[in-house]
């Protein structure tokens, strides 16, 4: 009986991801290297922004992944709450530091881009502020995982925090929009062809985004494996105590 849930078995998960990991990592490297080189060296400079525009190839994918990592944690938390698959909870735990790092990358590259463009490193612009708040949510989520010893308790509490946090993160997003209309340009990407950035910048950007997604998947696989093994180690230690 083939079902997606069979990968919820830790052993099966490790075996499968072991096979996938080299491929995903290699693809991530290829996509990132080609995308970044294409973007940095083979695109024209913007008539207004000069060469600073090229930071878009780090900034936009990182910002996308910062949000998508939280989405993935939300889905994984829901799976844990509903189906009690341990791998799911551990995958959510594994994704959090990656998402937090992506948020930092987005904030830092944004600051570096913003300085020459807007003349300031930081502005309480809605998008920037929302990302800072998202970063705080990541911090709280990781701190709660770290603070609780019992793995199942920690998984339950963090997944409920993730659910509640998602609602409040969304609320904050709209609250912040209400609070200050900002400098940040509109979305760089959009399905509407008229809206998004010029094709010259668009295609390398897509490659970079693909690279970031693959990188994220590879890191989540790797870190989830580590979490599973750490969990297994703790279980074995507990088993030792049980034997006495």
């Amino acid at each position: 009986m083939a079902s997606i849930w069979e990968y919820a078995n830790p052993k099966k998960f490790i075996a499968t991801t072991d096979k996938l990991l080299p491929w995903v990592s290699a693809l991530a490297v290829v996509a990132l290297v080609s995308g970044l080189i294409w973007g940095f060296f083979f695109t024209p400079e913007d008539y207004k922004q000069g060469s600073t525009v090229k930071i878009i190839y780090l900034h936009v994918p990182a910002a996308l992944m910062a949000i998508n990592a939280w989405m993935m944690m939300l889905v994984a938390s829901l799976v844990w709450i509903v189906r009690r698959h341990h791998v799911s909870a551990l995958a959510a735990r594994a994704a959090a530091p990656i998402g937090a790092t992506m948020t930092v990358i987005a904030l830092v590259t944004g600051a570096i881009w913003g300085q020459p463009m807007w003349g300031t490193w930081w502005e309480w612009d809605p998008r920037l502020t929302s990302f800072l708040i998202l970063f705080l949510f990541y911090l709280g989520y990781m701190a709660l995982w770290a603070a609780i010893e019992n793995d199942d308790t920690a998984a339950d509490l963090t997944s409920i925090l993730c659910l509640v946090g998602s609602v409040f993160a969304l609320l904050s997003r709209y609250a912040v929009n209400f609070w200050n209309q900002g400098l940040h340009q509109g979305a760089s990407l959009s399905l509407d062809k008229e809206e998004h950035v010029n094709d010259v910048y668009y295609y390398p950007l897509l490659v970079c985004i693909a690279g970031f997604i693959l990188l994220f998947v590879a890191l989540v696989f790797l870190r989830t494996q580590t979490e599973i093994r750490a969990r297994r180690t703790r279980a074995l230690l507990a088993r030792e105590r049980l034997g006495q």
Partner: peptide
């Protein structure tokens, strides 16, 4: 944990 949740209310 609580302070980020307070953001919308505060705003």
């Amino acid at each position: 944990l609580v302070l980020p949740l307070y953001v919308p209310t505060l705003i």
